[in-house]
Design a binder for these strands. Structure first.
Length: 216
DNA sequence: AGAATGATCCTCT
DNA sequence: GAGGATCATTCTC
């Protein structure tokens, strides 16, 4: 295949990933979704980046070649999926924060401990989301739904079992704003999401108004 | 060896 | 909107 778009500069990858398809071929079935929200992390200069103080065993993959998965555990229980960017030696990645389920949504629901979508049975097992789109609207949730764990850390995201198919089509309406859940470098506008999509984890209505006529 | 810190999610008010 | 869960990783002593 042609040179992957994942070799582009980090912020361009973060933009270009919106609309791309994330696919996981699991033993129990094929799961996929459209990426609708991303965040860029780029060291040096970004104190929120895991690698801002140098290489450690955990963030080692970020220093490697682009196009690989950086998967780690947050708060001791949630997996986070990142796409490594930039040439070897430069620590950078794009966090996938939300996807829109396309294939295998019932298996995703099962992975999340939820009843199948469309089934109204109230067996009492598992928790019922207050909104039907609580399936993959968050970095921890989408990893749980997609069956992504530590065993995929460092794997090549251009081939199965976990891979990304680029978006090819008309320009999508993007919103650019600040990142979520961090305490350092909070001012950097390095989060991107698909305007109007229901699976975006957190909207920024101020940014949406300010960017009303802009098209990403 | 001990303490602090999270790129979060869920529940309850 | 606020707080607890829960533990790997990292920093500090």
């Amino acid at each position: 295949m042609a040179e992957s778009f994942l070799t582009l500069p980090t912020l361009e990858v973060a933009r270009a990933l919106i609309g791309a398809m994330l696919v996981h071929e699991t033993p129990r079935g094929r799961l996929s979704g459209r990426i609708v929200e991303t965040e860029a992390y780029l060291s040096p200069g970004d104190d929120a980046c895991h690698a801002y103080r140098g290489e450690t065993p955990r963030n080692r993959v970020m220093f490697g070649p682009p196009g690989r998965a950086y998967v780690y555990i947050s708060y001791g229980l949630h997996y986070m999926l990142n796409v490594v960017t930039e040439a070897p030696g430069v620590a950078a990645a794009v966090l996938i924060r939300a996807i829109e389920p396309l294939e295998g949504s019932d298996l995703m629901a099962a992975n999340r401990g939820l009843a199948p979508l469309g089934a109204m049975a109230g067996s009492g097992a598992g928790y019922q989301p207050s909104r039907p789109h609580n399936l993959t609207n968050g970095p921890g949730r989408l990893c749980q739904a997609m069956g992504i764990g530590a065993e995929l850390n460092g794997t090549d995201l251009t081939r199965p079992p976990l891979y990304i198919r680029p978006y090819q089509g008309e320009a999508l309406p993007l919103v650019q704003t600040t990142r979520i859940g961090i305490t350092r470098s909070v001012e950097l506008p390095w989060r991107f999401y698909l305007r109007g999509n229901r699976d975006v984890s957190v909207r920024d209505r101020t940014a949406e108004r300010a960017q009303a006529s802009a098209i990403g």
